[in-house]
Design a protein around this nucleic acid. Structure first.
Lengths: 354, 354
DNA sequence: CCCGGTTATCAAACCGGTTTGATCGACGCG
DNA sequence: CGCGTCGATCAAACCGGTTTGATAACCGGG
């Protein structure tokens, strides 16, 4: 009934050879006569033998698994489109390679470092993905100290001994601002994610740079937290400004959709009186009203390439350092939530909040 | 530099005892003099020794890990609020118990069974969570055959040797229909998830039963797939009916939000001309316009309890069967997307789609 | 015919824990 | 004083693979 009954000793006995020879034959090592190898493989097949992962793991000191530590509050995680798709991409590489994925979800804070530490000291994983990179990220030194292999998602702003797998956010944001400028917008606000994330910073800087390049003053900026509630509050703040923006670029789609809700509540029509641009390209975005203009990314592909790169880092056969990888950058997807700004007259007609 | 340098033999040498005694002392087994135990613990502490997980795993034939196989297409996964929150809840139990979570994301189909098979034959996990239960789910027999421990999320419709951790969807849906009936709705449509999921069925039946109880004919029903696109298509279909519903209940929030988008596109105002109820209680729901009336669930708590239950199943000290657990049922959360149906006159004024 | 080198194979050690069976000393009791 | 019992401890076996070092058989060259 139970799987995993036969050991390598059983195979050896059936094939009439020693354990060592079986091991050599099954691992394709030289020094085994072709005829003997055949006999051994046949014996293994007959018994339905499969190597015991635990024993192999002990003798070769490898876990045959990689880890992902996600440090986000549970409520934020549920709305985030990145991780599920990223993980799905990762799995397409891991499974065929005989590797498993260990997932750890921890509340933000010190628990995160403890998570990596456990992975390392217990020897549960051979390497990890470093996501949500932060400015001067302390985890890099931690992983180096722990001797864990890793790949980083995007390039850290400090020295790192790990290969980076990068998907440049900036071109998409640049295109978004250019698109809005083309339409005639001048005051273009930005709702950012938490400041210490590298990706928050790069998107925000891309916005600022694009404004500068267009000869415009960088419009109002609000730092939010990627949640719908945060996006709504940020939008309310921007719309309360005396010189309110005619367009807002958001660091993710969820905040953008919540922002449209706030605009709607105030009687501002999107896109006529307020243009909105999101970021991520979640599926729901094209089905809200109006359909969300957004910057699309490919977390699935990112996961795939990140996993391939991590496999390369872990592979004992890899000589020397593994190169960084650059993925296709994020791209603007124009839909219905952006349009020419309303003329002054039209804007005056909008009822102000009391 | 590298962690994990000292072995139990080092501790034994330092404490001046044998390996076996160290093992006894550290596992709290009797037959070790108090004074000796102290000496051993001190030695272990001094060396910073931690047991090698791989060695322990081999000798006790346990993985100290549990698995979750998610069989969903990547695009659907990104929009789903359940798994991230569920996993976060699971982790709150697993980490303190010294267990890890292995995650496998596979495309729907045969790959799923292969996933469980790998978990079992490689001995990677001691047990699994069985989510997204389907009608006459073949995975139950598979897991029994593989000898894996498991808990099921909700009660299967066939015999099962695994404890079930249940969160009843139906009261929430029942309340939703009652709420709509109270408001005066008569034609209440339903957009379901894929039919073979147990939870799709139970929600749909709750809707049908509530309609029956209200003395109403079960309104039009469309089977969709939990995606925004599916929800939009289903809504379009319902609104195209000659006798179109004045309210629609959806099997999840994403479809409901997409449905509101469709209504909006057709010039139907929500809730004035169409009431909408979702299911899940995603954060974004309260920030769209109008805020979504929905049935809220607690996937985080579900994960916590499911993990506790699975720990109990796995624990060698547990005698006999583990009992099923019943969680707090889903509850209706009334927000702005439901209201009295428009009068006939008002409804006639609505522009029809060409 | 002997020698050095190669190839095929095996027995044993090893990875680092847990578990078993045996040993030893102290103690209580008849 | 001798014996049985018990508690503390140890050495060795074990989990199931991989890796090492030794050995035997065989080869061609001098």
């Amino acid at each position: 009934m139970e799987a995993q009954r036969f050991t390598i000793a059983d195979v050896a006995r059936l094939a009439g050879v020693s354990k060592g020879t079986v091991s050599f034959a099954l691992n394709g090592r030289g020094g085994v006569a072709a005829e003997t190898r055949e006999r051994i493989l046949a014996a293994a097949r007959e018994l339905g033998w499969q190597p015991n992962h635990r024993a192999r793991s002990l003798s070769v000191s490898r876990a045959f698994a990689v880890g992902l530590v996600v440090a986000r509050p549970a409520e934020l995680l549920g709305a985030d489109p990145f991780f599920p798709a990223f993980i799905a991409g990762v799995e397409t590489v891991l499974s065929p390679a005989g590797q498993s994925l260990l997932l750890q979800v921890v509340p933000p804070g010190e628990a995160e470092a403890a998570g990596y530490r456990t992975f390392a000291t217990e020897g549960r994983v051979d390497g990890v993905f470093l996501t949500d990179l932060r400015s001067a990220d302390r985890r890099i030194a931690l992983l180096e100290e722990l001797g864990l292999a890793a790949v980083t998602l995007n390039r850290p702003d400090i020295a790192s001994s790990f290969p980076a797998v990068c998907a440049d956010d900036r071109p998409g944001v640049t295109q978004a601002v250019a698109h809005l400028v083309d339409l005639g917008h001048v005051r273009i606000g930005y709702v950012s994610g938490p400041q210490d994330f590298i990706h928050s910073g790069s998107r925000r800087e891309a916005w600022a740079a694009a404004m500068r390049d267009a000869g415009l003053a960088a419009g109002p900026l609000v730092v939010a937290d990627f949640t719908a509630a945060g996006g709504a509050a940020a939008t309310a703040h921007l719309l309360d400004l005396p010189e309110r923006p005619t367009a807002i670029v958001y660091a993710n789609d969820v905040m953008a959709i919540a922002g449209m809700g706030v605009a709607h509540n105030r009687g501002l029509r999107v896109p006529r009186e307020l243009s909105v641009v999101g970021f991520d390209g979640i599926e729901l975005g094209s089905h809200v009203h109006p359909p969300l203009t957004t910057v699309t990314t490919d977390p699935f592909g990112w996961g795939r390439v990140a996993a391939e790169t991590l496999m390369r880092v872990i592979d004992p056969a890899t000589q020397g350092a593994v190169d960084d990888v650059e993925l296709a950058p994020a791209r603007l997807q124009v839909r219905g939530s952006t349009a020419k700004p309303a003329t002054r007259r039209a804007r005056r007609a909008v009822p102000e909040t009391p």
